[in-house]
Simulated scan of single mutants.
Amino acid sequence: MDDNQFPVTTPVKSDSNTIAALTWVGGIFFGFIPSLIVFLLKKDDPFVLEHAKEALNWSITVMIGYAISAVLTVILVGFLGIFLLGLANVVFCIIAAITASKGEAYRLPYVLRLIK
């Protein structure tokens, strides 16, 4: 099995694909809030739950990166970090949303896996 994918044992429904994709898109605009809501409310759907966990882990990782970059703005390196983190957030969330809408599992690279 590929390291960037997690197992899904049940067939994926269209509603599940949509909710998982919207969780990722919501992460672009609202941070960790959409993924936390979906994580708490959709425990009965393993596909959506796995995407919500991954999106929540990604959001936490991005927030930590923003905090570090904010501290580093004192020496002007943080501005580059904030820009690159924002760009990576948009790109990875779009890739994950497209993958989720196809009904496929996706794991992002460089993520702190705090929620298991």
Rank of each mutant, 00 (worst) to 15 (best):
P46N: 04
L108A: 05
F83M: 15
D45K: 10
A52D: 00
H51A: 00
L36K: 06
G86T: 06
S16Y: 13
K42T: 09
I82T: 07
F39H: 09
G26I: 03
G86W: 07
L49K: 09
P34F: 08
A20Y: 06
T73Y: 00
D3R: 13
G26P: 07
L40E: 06
D45C: 09
G65Y: 04
A100L: 04
S101E: 02
V77N: 15
P11C: 12
F92S: 11
L41M: 15
F39M: 07
P109V: 05
A21I: 08
G65A: 11
S101Y: 11
P34Q: 02
I115R: 02
A88I: 15
S16Q: 15
V77G: 14
I95R: 13
A100W: 01
V38Q: 03
A96P: 05
A96N: 07
T10I: 11
K53L: 00
S59G: 14
F39D: 04
E50P: 00
N89A: 12
W24Y: 09
F47G: 01
I64A: 12
H51I: 00
R113Y: 00
V90I: 15
E104G: 02
F83T: 11
M1H: 06
L41Y: 12
A55D: 00
T23E: 06
L112C: 05
Y110V: 15
D2W: 04
E50N: 01
G81R: 09
F83V: 14
F29C: 12
K13D: 15
Y110N: 14
K13C: 10
V90M: 12
A21S: 14
E104Q: 12
D2K: 08
K43F: 13
I75G: 09
I60E: 03
V38W: 04
K102S: 07
I115H: 02
Q5L: 01
G26N: 01
L72C: 11
N89S: 14
A70S: 06
D15I: 14
V38R: 03
K42L: 12
S35E: 02
E50K: 01
L36H: 09
T23K: 05
G65F: 11
S16I: 13
L84Y: 13
V77E: 14
V91D: 10
G86V: 05
F29N: 07
G81A: 15
I94L: 15
T9V: 06
